[in-house]
């Protein structure tokens, strides 16, 4: 028997592989489903992906709806929205969560119109209000200055996108068992992906980096970012930046961390010459360990730091590089 209703997560496939964010969603979904006492299902759409459904079970899913077709090899919003919408209208989940990635953010706004329900963007926290069994969706608002709690009392499913890296996946458990449900809806599209043009890569993408060395206005100029590159390379990490640094063209927009940039959760985040404005914290405060270097002992960044060094980053960073090299 297929169990209808429950909590659903939308898996994301990149380059034919289930992406990490899919497992992060399952970690959120598992909590919600357990509180509600309902099953957790993952939706998996793509080509040649059916064999990866077990991995979703191992990360927390009780059921996986699989739609595997050559026509779903590329993400095309019209067909993906139709396939997902078809599954939703037949199996009626209570809750549907997707990642706030370019895919999730392109797809979900189509779905909430079709399903005539609410959609909350870019959540950083999800929970269940047990009395009414409603999903409580928490997201930064007004430039990250406040957190807003949002409910969807009208309309089902309750839908939201969740910020990547707002949560770690559950450890893989290959002994878990789950049901795999193959579906064969209409997968045709009127759109076509002509080509993918990859970015020139420097270091790991920020969202995947274990170590991030980030610079702000306190780095004083573009050429000082070279020492951050050097430190990052020594630690096997990538370089990030505050918006102030990006605005001054010291670093590319792709390295901006924060509310209007990327959300990151490295093992270690080293903030150099960054004041710690809420909008910056919104993107990095979930890092495992934060080290901050700032000349101002009152800088807000020190309040989220595990280790704070009051000092000139232009001295401390080169000295640190020297010690790492020796």
């Amino acid at each position: 028997m297929i169990e209808s209703g429950g909590v659903w997560t939308l898996s994301e496939v990149r380059g034919g592989l289930v992406h990490q964010v899919s497992y992060e969603l399952l970690a959120w979904g598992r909590d919600l489903a357990d509180v509600l006492g309902t099953p957790l299902s993952a939706v998996l759409m793509g080509h040649g992906v059916a064999g990866q459904a077990e991995g979703l079970v191992a990360h927390g899913a009780d059921q996986v709806y699989v739609v595997d077709s050559p026509e779903l090899a590329d993400f095309l919003p019209d067909s993906f929205a139709r396939v997902l919408g078809d599954l939703v209208s037949r199996h009626r989940p209570e809750i549907l969560i997707a990642s706030a990635t370019s895919t999730g953010r392109a797809l979900m706004p189509l779905l909430f119109v079709d399903a005539d329900t609410g959609l909350t963007a870019d959540c950083t926290e999800l929970s269940i209000e047990t009395d009414e069994r409603l999903l409580l969706q928490t997201r930064p608002a007004i430039g990250g200055n406040v957190m807003a709690d949002i409910r969807t009392p009208l309309g089902r499913p309750q839908m939201c996108t969740v910020r990547p890296r707002s949560r770690r996946p559950l450890p893989e458990d290959r002994s878990r068992t789950g049901r795999i449900v193959e579906e064969t809806p209409d997968v045709s599209s009127v759109m076509r992906l002509l080509e993918f043009l990859p970015e020139k890569k420097v270091g790991a993408p920020l969202q995947d980096a274990e170590v991030i060395v980030s610079g702000g206005r306190g780095m004083k100029g573009a050429r000082n970012f070279a020492m951050l590159e050097e430190l990052a390379a020594l630690l096997g990490g990538s370089v990030g930046a505050s918006r102030a640094a990006v605005d001054m063209n010291w670093a590319p927009y792709s390295s901006q961390v924060g509310l209007s940039g990327k959300s990151v959760t490295p093992k270690v985040y080293i903030a150099c010459g960054i004041s710690g404005a809420v909008q910056h914290l919104a993107g990095m405060s979930a890092s495992d360990t934060v080290i901050a270097i700032n000349t101002d002992p009152e800088a807000a960044i020190f309040r989220v730091a595990d280790l704070g060094i009051v000092g000139d980053a232009l001295e401390v960073v080169p000295a640190l590089i020297g010690r790492l090299r020796s």
């Binding site: 909350t120 957190m147 709690d149 969807t152 309040r303 730091a305 595990d306």
Partner: peptide, 17 residues
């Protein structure tokens, strides 16, 4: 369909040295 039920301040504080 949605309602904002509450707004609060993000307080991220670590007891770092």
């Amino acid at each position: 369909p949605t309602r904002v039920v509450r707004v609060s301040y993000p307080h991220v504080v670590r007891k770092g040295r």
